[in-house]
Amino acid sequence: MSQHRILLIEDDEDLATLYRIGLEKEGFIVYTSKNGLQGITKAIEKEVDLVLLDLMMPLADGRDVLAMLRLNAKSQNIPVIIISNLNPGTLDLSQYDDQVIDYWVKSEITPKMLASRLQSYFS
């Protein structure tokens, strides 16, 4: 079982719990954070392997979090995957191109799919 450390920055409680359960089942170590600022500290503190980042959040939204992660030497190399329910068609995703691995629409992925996608990323 993989022991990868994932930080999930997601402000919706139901979804945060959902993904945490789903990922823990597959052996991931999951940290969650309800807001962006707390997320940045946690990412550094817990030395996570990957950040799953929601975009629409209070107290520093996804874009701010990404910028701040990239500014800090301790966090600038942590891979980030954006998970959001914002319509990718209406977003300018190119602005994230250099900074994130991927953009996933939450409604398209179930917890199992999320886990298997992450597993294949780490393998």
């Binding site: 139901d14 979804l15 993904y19 789903g22 329910n85 629409v105 939450k106 409604s107």
Partner: peptide, 11 residues
């Protein structure tokens, strides 16, 4: 709409 749907599907 997607947010509750995500939750429903996931749970």
């Amino acid at each position: 709409l997607r947010t509750p749907l995500t939750a429903i599907r996931g749970y």
